[in-house]
């Protein structure tokens, strides 16, 4: 029996390593690595700001639309609603886990720890897009409505972080009601969320017919655009890490790796309880493991200006994002496959 356990664990490890190796030599990861290396080498390579914004709009539109089409194909069921609820609960709860872990592993102040925690309760849509791309390459199906779950998980974590600071008696920008109302509106009507949900709704309404009409635009070029976008993300992450590496104490570095694994564990539990497909479980794990670097940093600058952006941006973008992209997603896939037995 022990021999079998050792054999099975060894085989599982082989599976994870094979998946990780396969993932590491995929174009999207290699382009990310190119950007990362170029930034570290202080290359002048850069992607113009307007092009990067255009690509991000394209990716949100494509992923949202395809998710909507998938829902149109498979119909709406109770699991969709429960998945949305689970996503919101995870986003509310994960900042508390992150906050506790930060207080144990690092000497961050309450405000800094809460700001970092907010990032880890929220999600990274680019990590989600990369995970869907890896799933597609592996021939694994997932629930199309996970796009809506991603959108639902963007904001609640911010409220948890503000509560953590308020509980500790710290200053929170939302005490000013006009700023609080404005902040909430900005979070909920964040351009990324509006486009993602809007494209999702259009995809759900128009279905396969709509997809056929714009397939040449949103399906075939998708991976190429993702490669270019990840090249830019590599440049941004590399520059951020190069400039802020002095901040990265071992405890913070450990948090940047451990928290996504812990988050993925909660995502796994939620996915299994919801009865999601293996691909859906992988996406729920990825969403729970990822950290925001678009919506939450802006919200934190407004609500918690005392928190140091160099800490939360470096952790989310310089440590956790590359980790999830290279090793995290293959690990989540291997674990989900092992647990669901597919």
């Amino acid at each position: 029996m022990f021999a079998c356990q050792g054999y099975c664990v060894g085989r599982e490890m082989d599976g994870i390593l094979a998946l990780a190796a396969e993932n590491l030599i995929s174009p999207i990861i290699l382009f990310f690595a190119l950007g990362f290396a170029a930034a570290f080498a202080r290359s002048e390579l850069s992607v113009p700001e307007a092009i990067a914004k255009g690509m991000s709009l394209y990716l949100l539109l494509a992923i949202g639309f395809k998710g909507g089409v998938s829902v149109a194909d498979h119909g709406v069921d109770a699991t969709l609603v429960l998945s949305l609820v689970a996503g919101v609960i995870l986003s509310f709860a994960l900042p508390f886990v992150a906050f506790a872990l930060l207080r144990v592993l690092t000497g961050l102040s309450i405000v800094d720890a809460a700001a970092v925690a907010a990032h880890y309760g929220s999600i990274s849509i680019v990590t989600f897009v990369a995970a869907t791309s890896v799933l597609t390459s592996a021939g694994m199906e997932s629930e199309g409505y996970m796009v809506a779950v991603a959108a639902a998980m963007e904001a609640p974590a911010i409220l948890s972080a503000l509560w953590l600071v308020a509980r500790a008696g710290g200053g929170v920008g939302t005490r000013d009601s006009s700023m609080g109302g404005g902040l909430l509106r900005e979070i909920l009507l964040n351009g990324s969320i509006v486009l993602l949900i809007g494209a999702f709704a259009i995809g759900a309404v128009t279905g396969q017919e709509g997809l056929t009409e714009i397939e040449a635009f949103i399906v075939a070029p998708f991976k190429g655009v993702l490669c270019l976008f990840l090249l830019d993300m590599g440049l941004v992450a590399g520059r951020g890490l190069r400039e802020s590496r002095g901040l990265l104490r071992p405890g913070l570095f450990a948090f940047g790796i451990l928290m996504p694994l812990a988050g993925a564990g909660f995502g796994l539990l939620a996915g299994l309880m919801l009865g999601l497909s293996t691909g859906g479980v992988v996406l729920m794990m990825t969403l729970s493991a990822s950290a925001s670097y678009i919506a939450v940093p802006a919200a934190m600058r407004v609500a918690l200006p005392e928190a140091k952006p160099a800490i939360y941006l470096t952790l989310a973008l310089g440590i956790t994002f590359p980790f999830n992209l290279t090793l995290g997603i293959p690990i989540y896939m291997a674990v989900a496959r092992a647990v669901t037995g597919s």
Binding site: S46, V47, E49, A52, S56, D232, M233, L235, V236, R239, E243, Y293, I294, A295, P297, A298, M300, R301, P309, L313, L317
Partner: peptide, 12 residues
């Protein structure tokens, strides 16, 4: 330091 270049959000 802060720079407009390579910002994924408006945070910085």
């Amino acid at each position: 330091k802060w720079s407009r270049e390579g910002q994924v959000s408006r945070a910085s």
